[in-house]
């Protein structure tokens, strides 16, 4: 564990807590893409299959349980409890256009052609594009609530911090995982225009409103 990865995990944790607070306090899921949350649930389920078979540390297990628990709770809030406030018309990204290519790529490009490894690779590739339905929804509605912007900033920062973690681990431990790094770079790049909007607007107390 290193400071970059710890900050990354805390940023990820903060993003999930911000999202839950937004939903619980406002009792509304307006502006939140249910499809992205379903993709994140798929990512965590595929990645944490070893939750019960390989024990790394208390921290690792607790975080995995928390991530899986909260993402399914988020889906419950979106599609059941606060279903009336879910904006399905704007959450219209065709996720099959993500899942099929990512699934195919996981079969073709992986570290080892073994079931658990391919499923892990699938979760890495899927995570790098899982935010697209959410970004697409914001571009369609033309705006994002400030709290949603904070959620996205924390979520985007988590993988950017993981990139720093991989640089550190490369020099400190000689650890290098090309698949995770390339997917992490793609994932972080997807947030760049949002980061720009966040820093130029939200940091100055303005709301993010894209030219619809």
């Amino acid at each position: 564990m290193n400071i970059f990865r710890l900050c990354g995990d805390m940023s990820h944790l903060a993003a999930i807590i911000i999202l839950l607070l937004k939903m619980w306090k406002t009792r509304s899921v307006a502006g939140i893409s249910g499809k992205s949350q379903i993709l994140f649930a798929t990512v965590f389920t595929a990645r944490y299959l070893d939750l019960f078979t390989s024990f790394i540390s208390i921290y690792n297990t607790c975080m995995k349980v928390f991530f899986i628990g909260t993402v399914y709770f988020t889906i419950y809030l979106i599609y059941m409890k606060f279903k009336a406030t879910y904006d399905s018309n704007h959450d219209s990204f065709r996720v099959e256009f993500l899942i099929v290519p990512v699934g195919g790529l996981a079969f073709l490009v992986n570290h080892e052609f073994a079931p658990l490894e391919i499923i892990w690779t699938f979760s890495i590739y899927l995570e790098s594009v899982a935010i697209l339905p959410q970004l697409f929804m914001i571009s369609k509605t033309g705006e994002a609530e400030t709290i949603t912007s904070h959620y996205l900033f924390a979520l985007g920062s988590y993988r950017a911090l993981y990139l720093c973690n991989w640089i550190y681990r490369y020099y400190a431990e000689g650890f290098f995982d090309l698949i995770a790094v390339v997917a992490g770079v793609v994932q972080t790049i997807l947030y760049c225009d949002f980061f720009y909007l966040y820093i130029t607007k939200v940091m100055k107390g303005k709301k993010i409103s894209l030219p619809a």
Binding site: R5, R47, N60, M63, K64, F67, H111, E112, Y162
Partner: peptide, 10 residues
Amino acid sequence: ENATLVKDEL
């Protein structure tokens, strides 16, 4: 090879 490496990251 990374495959044998235990996945210790979240």
